[in-house]
């Protein structure tokens, strides 16, 4: 309940925030939004399916470069390149993830690090003569929405956070769906999931491709915002930051937003300590695993109406005096089944 109130308040704050910010702080908020989007897309892979994927910057890079190349070479409008950027990143993810998806947690982690490094080196070496080597690509056009040209920070703010809003709704729907349940089941225990008839490799691959698709589209937004992209923007440290945001968040969407703010916004607020920010994050990751391994804000327990109704009835028949009221209250009580699911999805065991 408090979480709902908090979410609504946060949403309202995000809507009106740029009215009180100067251009610099609006820019910072745009960056927080971009990282929040990337983290939300990684959350599907890492938070929901429990796949230890640390190469998300690779998909982000593929999307950004797709947009940059289409826009500078063939003058495609930015918004038209967006689905293409997503599709290219998804296709890339499909190709690279297919042979490695069965690898166990820490091995997969290493391979995804290898992939992000290979992508960066390929971009640096001007692969196919399209990526512009270490200089990258510059002169990417501003996006246009019909006749409205998106130039100012505040325009980008609403564009990026609008996309965050859409992503939150879509990913929430995904979490509630059969697909989302299957991913959570795989995260909790992949052998048991296989036993329940879930095709683990296919679901993991689907989560991977979906996350990559979203990261590719965020790449479009990033390229449009920056107008210049270079391989160093997609180095391994970016992957680590996105990874750390998701790990610290605990896997809930609200948690991702808060943790994106902590990682991107807080260092700007504490400028004089900005050199030490990664030091603090490293320390935070260690301490977090010792004291709060489930993350800042793990997702709440899943609720199933059927189970709630049955347990509610049992509850009300037990207390015959105020049956109706207790029945209502019973629906609010966290059922043992749900508590168990929550406990299991909170774990990170392979």
């Amino acid at each position: 309940m408090t979480r709902t109130v908090f979410s609504v308040a946060l949403g309202a704050l995000i809507c009106v925030l740029p009215l009180f910010c100067n251009a610099y702080w609006t820019d910072v908020c745009v960056m927080i939004g971009l990282y929040a989007l990337l983290s939300l897309s990684l959350n599907v892979i890492l938070g929901q399916a429990g796949i230890f994927h640390m190469g998300h910057a690779a998909f982000f890079a593929v999307g950004a470069y797709t947009t940059a190349i289409c826009n500078t070479l063939w003058q495609w409008p930015i918004f038209l390149t967006m689905p293409l950027a997503g599709a290219t990143a998804a296709l890339f993810a499909l190709v690279v993830a297919r042979p490695i998806i069965h690898l166990r947690g820490d091995y997969l982690l290493i391979v995804t690090i290898g992939i992000v490094e290979i992508v960066r080196i390929a971009l640096l070496n001007d692969v196919f003569g399209l990526t512009g080597g270490s200089n990258g690509i510059f002169g990417i056009a501003r996006p246009r929405f019909f006749d409205f040209r998106i130039v100012k920070s505040i325009h980008f703010y609403y564009l990026v956070w609008g996309m965050v809003g859409i992503s939150l709704v879509l990913f929430y729907g995904l979490w509630r769906s059969r697909f989302g349940r299957a991913l959570n089941c795989i995260k909790a225990d992949d052998v048991a999931a296989e036993g329940c008839g879930i095709n683990v490799s296919r679901y993991k691959l689907a989560a991977f491709v979906l996350g990559a698709f979203w990261a590719g589209m965020v790449g479009t937004l990033y390229a449009a915002k920056m107008t210049t992209i270079a391989p160093e923007s997609f180095n391994f440290m970016e992957s680590v930051i996105i990874f750390a945001v998701v790990i610290l968040s605990g896997g809930s969407q609200l948690g991702v937003l808060i943790s994106a703010f902590l990682f991107i916004g807080l260092p700007e607020l504490l400028r004089e300590f900005s050199d030490a920010r990664m030091l603090v994050f490293g320390l935070a990751m260690m301490l977090m695993m010792i004291w709060r391994p489930q993350g800042l804000l793990p997702p709440g327990p899943r609720r199933y109406p059927v189970v709630d109704r049955i347990l509610g009835k049992l509850h009300s028949s037990g207390q015959n005096a105020s049956g109706g009221l207790a029945g209502l209250a019973g629906a609010e009580v966290e059922t043992p089944v749900n508590a168990q699911t929550a406990a299991r999805t909170g774990e990170d065991r392979p």
Partner: peptide, 8 residues
């Protein structure tokens, strides 16, 4: 759990 240690 192994992956907590990896994150650490």
């Amino acid at each position: 759990g192994r992956l907590s240690a990896v994150v650490s």
